[in-house]
């Protein structure tokens, strides 16, 4: 973990309002692991940094993929190549060791960190990706390039299979043979994934989101209720997570 001013090497719009920004990150890129995130300063007038998952790290560069939601991400989407970005990271724990056959389940902006995992894991990966509609699909080709199989769903059926990730996920789990599920996306999707994983007895790690202050574990604003060994406790999404064993999370 370190804070550094990074030179932006690329800013590309992947879909309407979704951007991929890459920057030089030196040593920080070397210590980045899938599931970790960076805390980015989005202009002098915004007191809080914005947490964004690392979508890729290689050759001393890092990439983040994000959707414009409010002022901070809008500011970030307007940064030009050659400009400077104040980045704190890499932060958090990451997905950890992955081996054998892994199911990566992503919803919307949950897909980018899974791509980093799929690309670098020493495992055979099946990806199940859900989006709102065809226009929101991102990174599909990149997933196809590094995964055994890729299933895409959209809520409105405008591309891929109609519905949520639950149907293909249930079918794949019923087919069997998976050693691990990793997942990132909206909370209702994660709840469903955790439930399916439990019923098929497949270990499952989920990446959670919570509003953050410091991003390093010092302020306790990013709390999430977990239970370890039966005892209820408050974990810090920024430091103890963002990736948690699905069985530990108080859904």
């Amino acid at each position: 973990m370190e804070r550094r001013d990074c030179v932006i090497t690329e800013n590309r719009e992947l879909a309407d309002g979704v951007f991929s920004v890459s920057f030089e990150a030196g040593e920080a890129a070397l210590s980045a692991r899938p599931g970790m995130f960076v805390h980015i300063k989005c202009g002098d007038s915004r007191i809080l940094r914005r947490p964004i998952s690392i979508a890729d790290a290689r050759g001393g560069e890092m990439t983040v993929v994000f959707e414009v939601k409010g002022d901070g991400t809008r500011w970030l989407s307007r940064r030009a190549r050659g400009g400077s970005l104040d980045v704190l990271g890499p932060l958090g724990n990451g997905f950890g060791r992955m081996g054998g056959r892994v199911l990566a389940v992503g919803g919307g902006m949950g897909a980018p960190p899974l791509l980093f995992a799929a690309r670098t894991a020493d495992a055979r990966v099946t990806a199940v990706l859900g989006f709102r509609d065809g226009g929101r699909i991102i990174l599909e080709d990149e997933f196809r390039a590094c995964c055994d199989e890729v299933y895409v769903t959209t809520d409105d059926g405008s591309a891929g299979e109609r519905g949520t990730v639950e149907a293909p996920l249930g079918a794949l789990l019923a087919r069997g043979g998976y050693d691990l599920i990793i997942s990132c996306g909206p909370r209702p999707m994660l709840t469903a994934v955790a439930r399916l994983a439990a019923s098929f007895r497949v270990p499952c790690r989920v990446s959670l989101e919570e509003r953050m202050g410091c991003g390093v574990g010092a302020c306790l604003v990013c709390a999430c209720e977990t239970a370890r060994g039966g005892a209820q406790q408050m974990s810090r999404v920024c430091r103890d997570g963002p990736v948690f064993d699905a069985g530990e999370v108080a859904w």
Binding site: R211, V221, C222, C224
Partner: peptide, 13 residues
């Protein structure tokens, strides 16, 4: 254990 989340909100400066 503290309060339920969200526990933080950004404001002007």
């Amino acid at each position: 254990l503290g309060n339920p989340t969200p526990r933080i909100a950004e404001t002007p400066m």
